[in-house]
Design a protein around this nucleic acid. Structure first.
Lengths: 188, 188
DNA sequence: TCCTTATTTGAATGATCATTCCATAATTGG
DNA sequence: CCAATTATGGAATGATCATTCAAATAAGGA
């Protein structure tokens, strides 16, 4: 029939993610995006619409990837507490890179409904998954039984954000490890 | 000799702070700034130089105000732990407003030396003040003696950032209070 | 070969950007 | 009143912005 698509849309999206997490939405220019995505300018607009739509798609893809990584870490340990620990350790190890989730929350808050539509379901699935693992850890006796698993989950997510802000602010690995240690300590 | 200045530079700066904390540096236009600062465009450039210099001045003033508020809260309680508690409660109560400190870290990280020059001393004085109060609380027996006060201080600052990111993301008062409770719990 | 679609690039569009020039008015002290 | 300084706002500057148009090339299947 016709010429097939050459580039992979998700690969191009990964390039956009790299630009947006470093410079935010307002700080990213179409030129930067085209350069990092490895496609022509017109292909960008044909495939992804405008810059704002591209941003939302980037945030969604980034968020799904982050959630998948969190889930895998949560499942990794034999005991649930080890999975929670592994999740925080992974955050520490990647905290030198800016987080697009935290960045988009800081840049826009909940002021854009079509962006909140991207955030909300991701946040909910992550919160539920962590809460479930906290419950497992409570059954194992590794987390205090009197803790509300939902509150503990929100606390862990807030600490993930805190670790990432600290990393973005230049904190070294040791300091970030200390933050993860303290967060786990609150669960005991 | 000549006509005295009519507007107060710090008052005008407060207007700029309001714009920058809501929209960030890149998202703030000169028009928005002029409107919020209540001065003419030319006065803005005469008094504060360019937009980037104005931003750094705004971050510095905001940071000094926040530090002062933290210090006052820290001193407020009879026992040191009550001061730490009060500090976190104040953060919870103000977390519906975006934080310019967190915002500027997320937007620029440590990539701009002249912005880092603003952040670094503020972060250090805050960290030292909180660490000192943690030591007091350890003497009172309200904080575990085996904790490193510096690490505990960094943990509290990271949790302040986490609470503010959560608030920016739409979390309600109850959820934010839960975060503060959990953070304090880690000190026991 | 022809048709269709994909892709790229140059050029143009119109908006908005930060910033400066300039003319004017206002307010002080001498 | 004069001189000096501050403030304001319109107009212009030149850059950059996101986005679109248009033309050219490329790559498949029929």
């Amino acid at each position: 029939m016709a010429r097939p698509r050459e580039f992979d849309a998700d690969t191009a999206l990964d390039g956009a993610i790299g630009v947006f997490r470093e410079h935010g939405f307002e700080g990213a220019s179409a030129e930067m995006l085209v350069g990092a995505m490895g496609i022509g300018r017109q292909s960008l607009y044909d495939t992804f619409g405008d810059k704002w739509r591209l941003y939302r798609l980037a945030v969604r893809r980034y968020g799904m990837g982050e959630c998948a990584a969190h889930f895998e870490a949560l499942r990794s340990g034999v005991r649930a507490i080890d999975g929670i620990d592994a999740m925080l350790r992974r955050v520490v190890e990647t905290a030198h890179q800016p987080c697009l989730g935290v960045g988009s929350i800081c840049e826009f808050g909940v002021s854009r409904p079509d962006l909140a539509e991207v955030h909300t379901p991701l946040a909910k699935t992550l919160r539920d998954a962590i809460a479930a693992r906290v419950r497992d850890a409570q059954r194992d006796g590794d987390v205090a039984a009197n803790l509300d698993p939902e509150a503990a989950s929100e606390f862990l997510i807030a600490n993930i954000a805190g670790i990432r802000v600290a990393g973005r602010g230049g904190a070294n690995r040791g300091a970030l490890t200390g933050l993860a240690d303290m967060a786990l300590r609150a669960l005991r």
